[in-house]
């Protein structure tokens, strides 16, 4: 299944609505579908520690807080050292 541009590593976000396709240089809509083969961007929603409780929001199982601290699925996780596929 093709990913939305904004869920790929080839997407360079310009603003909340659009960004550049790094491979073609074209300005594309963030929500449009990326070509097949584009790489999935690490995000909380793709992390096995993320537990969604309501739409777009949940908890992070890796947090040391009790109860577990919130997380939101759309957050980019390239810098999260606890991200797990």
């Amino acid at each position: 299944m093709n990913l939305a541009y904004r869920d790929t590593r080839e997407f360079v976000p310009v603003d909340a609505d659009k960004g550049l396709d790094r491979l073609t240089g074209a300005m594309v809509s963030a929500d449009s579908l990326a070509p097949a083969g584009y790489t999935r961007l690490p995000k909380c929603k793709f992390c096995s520690k993320y537990l969604e409780s309501e739409t777009n929001i949940g908890t992070c199982g890796a947090s040391a807080h009790e109860p577990k601290f919130m997380a939101y699925g759309d957050m980019t996780a390239v810098t999260c050292e606890m991200f797990a596929d």
Binding site: A16, D17, E54, N56, Y72, G73
Partner: peptide, 19 residues
């Protein structure tokens, strides 16, 4: 689209509003 205007100045993705 999926962009929510905050105070007529900033756009934020709708997926981020609950957070």
């Amino acid at each position: 689209n999926k962009v929510v205007s905050i105070a007529g100045k900033f756009g934020m993705r709708q997926e981020e509003i609950p957070a």
